[in-house]
Amino acid sequence: MQDGTSAQKEIALRADGRNRRTDSARLGRLNILVGALSLPLFVGLWELASRSGAVNMVLFPPPTVVAAAVLEWIRSGQFLGDLSASLLRVTTGFIVGGALGILFGILTGQFPVVSSLLSPLFHILRPIPPIAFVPIVILWFGLSEAGKLFLVVWGVFFTVWLSTHIGVQKVDRGLIRAALMLGTPRRQMLQEIVLLGALPYIVVGLRTAVSISFYTLVAAELAGTFAGIVYRIEIAQQNMQTGQVMGGLAALGLISFVADRLFAALAERTVWWR
């Protein structure tokens, strides 16, 4: 009985194997086709839904209206100002927060005393969503750029700190022993082994921090400012310019997508031995 079922299974498996190659090729082509259709299909349906009268066109404008709003935004010159204001906040915050995160990650990862001193504090502060700091940031910094920077730095710092800390701790002990046996002085161990060993972790942390810096940018600009992509979205909302709101969202999505892709490409070069 058992033999019979196993033989049947084997036959079924073999038949499966024969068809699998042609099947997977066909499926692959189908997937590419569907993938290419995804966006146009979505935009088309959106256009139809908006214009069908089933929804309020003012609240749910079709893509053509959104596109027109975006064009107007660019033509007026405001877009460039908003874009540069937002990008400046994100990049400065990312660089400052990232640098501090790497520095403290190395310190806590490498020196147990520093870790005992700082890690409990960091672990308590880390889970607080950066957005929750908006009220107190307004009290401390008013509407100044320093407050915006603070929020982005705060968001980026803990992610980068934790991944660097873990990276430093996870450096292969075997590599350190090998380096010791080859005569690497202990004071050179950081630059020769630890930093490079932790690099893959640091890069992952930095990449996660890219999207976090955009989250915190939203909070920072909603807290009150005078230029920026999210600021423009908020203003447009107050004026019932729904097309502009959606255009702003699309711009924000696009920028953060491009930033992530750029960083991924950069990361591949940073960890050059993979």
């Binding site: 590599l175 022993r177 090998a178 031995w273």
Partner: peptide, 10 residues
């Protein structure tokens, strides 16, 4: 060592 423990970045 039992594992080569080569420096992967070199």
């Amino acid at each position: 060592f039992q594992q080569p423990h080569l420096f992967p970045w070199k």
